[in-house]
Nucleic acid binder design. Sequence first.
DNA 1: CCAGTGATGTCCT
DNA 2: GGACATCACTGGT
Length: 194
Amino acid sequence: MVLTSPAHFGWLRLRSEAAARRLLGCELERRLDTGELLRARIVETEAYDEDDEASHTYRGRTERNAAMFGPAGRLYVYRMRGHHCCNVVTGEAGYGQGALLRAVEPLAGEATMSLLRGGRAGADLASGPGKLCQALAITHGLYGHDLASAPLRLIERPPLDPAAIVASPRIGVSRAVTAHRRFHLRDNVHVSRR
DNA sequence: CCAGTGATGTCCT
DNA sequence: GGACATCACTGGT
């Protein structure tokens, strides 16, 4: 008997900034078509929302960004220069926001992740939004996927000490460049560096 | 319809 | 530190 508490992941309904911080240290569990189970710890995120010039939702809802206007805990997948990137949708439905997953650290199935990454490993395995989608085989097929269920589950972990989290400007954006809405674990080898 | 543009990654020097 | 491959989406004709 599985116990599903309505309070579970309630913090995902926080605003993107708080949720992006809270996601650090949580884990992703990915069941591949082969049956193999991959697991990784989230070490870097960025917050985006409707009032944010750098956000995909800034100019309102479109077919592409529709998932970000839906319920929290689902996955928004988009393509960028030939790469996939993904957000965990946060906040209340109707207001487009989410937390971009920028980097993860492998916990299980690292060899397979490396294969999915074309042989890359270590600090280059999943230290970027496109890299982590490749390492965890996240594509448009998971658009809108509910992260409470297989084949991609979000696993909650205890909140981190706020002192272990570094806030800095987001990477790769050309608007709202001064906002410190990028969050990552201090001194973690697997975060992106740019 | 078409040109411009990225929430990127990789290779090169 | 810089060039470029690469492609869906967007906004303007």
